[in-house]
């Protein structure tokens, strides 16, 4: 049985697709057979970030409606060979995702994959609810600002009441907080909420903190999941997050502003 992980947030533009791309790539890199599904029907971004937009023939909705088989629609990643992408349709609407259709696709994927990562669309409507319905675990992507935290809280409520696990009365969906676009310098100036603030409000375990970084934007534009930028802060932070998702203990990093150089530390008296 595959583990089904939804990457969700409520709010748009916080880094769900970037996170889905990196987490799925990270899981696959560790040898787990992983598929990432783009639930953002009508917009389609995941294939751009994964750099496979030119290889899309069939999509998720085609499979749901029986117009194509999974094998025809799945795109194998060129960099990590245990990673597959199921792209979203750009010409359909989210209503094309039916509960039964999504269940059939997920069940079929469960037979051969270890991990199914669901990249949720923004909002709390049908598309987002379909993405989280079958989840075993949820990565709640949050930016350190008030409206994002509020929307994350809302989506946590939906996970607790409208997921399959909730409806069936099973163990609840395991929730993880992933704080993205974190800028410690701005936190110190009081312009952003701190990790502690967000943890206090949402009260769920922290999976990781991804520092705000130009590398993320560059990687997205070039179609490289940022986790593959192994030299970068953001890439390493995602690698830590994936390790923690798999149960490894790793200390949190990148939560304080740039280490001061030797001299500035000496002259400022530490």
């Amino acid at each position: 049985m595959a583990r089904i992980i939804v990457v969700t947030s409520g709010k748009g533009g916080v880094g769900k697709t970037t996170t889905s791309a990196s987490i799925s790539t990270g899981l696959a890199k560790r040898g787990h057979k992983t598929v990432v599904i783009d639930f953002d029907v009508g917009l389609r971004n995941l294939d751009l970030i994964m750099n496979c937009e030119r290889r899309v023939v069939y999509d998720f909705v085609n499979v749901i409606q029986g117009e194509a088989t999974l094998n025809q629609a799945l795109i194998r990643d060129k960099r990590v060979d245990t990673l597959y992408i199921l792209p979203a349709s750009q010409t359909r609407e989210k209503e094309a995702l039916t509960k039964e259709g999504v269940e059939r696709v997920i069940n079929e994927l469960s037979e051969t994959f270890d991990y199914i990562v669901c990249d949720s669309p923004a909002g709390i409507e049908h598309g987002a609810q379909m993405a989280l319905y079958y989840a075993d675990e949820a990565v709640v992507v949050t930016n350190p600002e008030v409206s994002s935290v509020r929307d994350s809280d809302r989506i946590l409520g939906i996970l607790q009441s409208k997921s399959r696990r909730a409806e069936m009365g099973q163990d609840p969906v395991r929730e993880h907080l992933l704080l993205t676009r974190y800028n410690p310098a701005r936190v110190e100036k009081g312009e952003m909420l701190s990790v502690g603030d967000v943890e206090e409000i949402l009260a769920i375990p922290l999976l990781g903190v991804i520092p705000e970084s130009q590398v993320v934007l560059n990687a997205s534009n070039q179609g490289v999941p940022v986790i593959l930028e192994e030299e970068s802060d953001a890439g390493q932070a995602y690698d830590d997050a994936v390790a923690r998702l798999l149960g490894e203990e790793r200390e949190h990093r990148f939560m304080t502003s740039q280490k001061k150089g030797f001299f500035s530390r000496m002259f400022k008296g530490g």
């Binding site: 809302r154 409520g157 607790q160 009260a203």
Partner: peptide
């Protein structure tokens, strides 16, 4: 925790919430 968008109702008595 009572999350954003959720509603808890005690129609006849008191309501005690041991969480935010």
């Amino acid at each position: 925790t009572v999350r954003s968008g959720q509603q808890i109702y005690a129609p006849e008595g008191d309501l005690v919430i041991l969480a935010p």
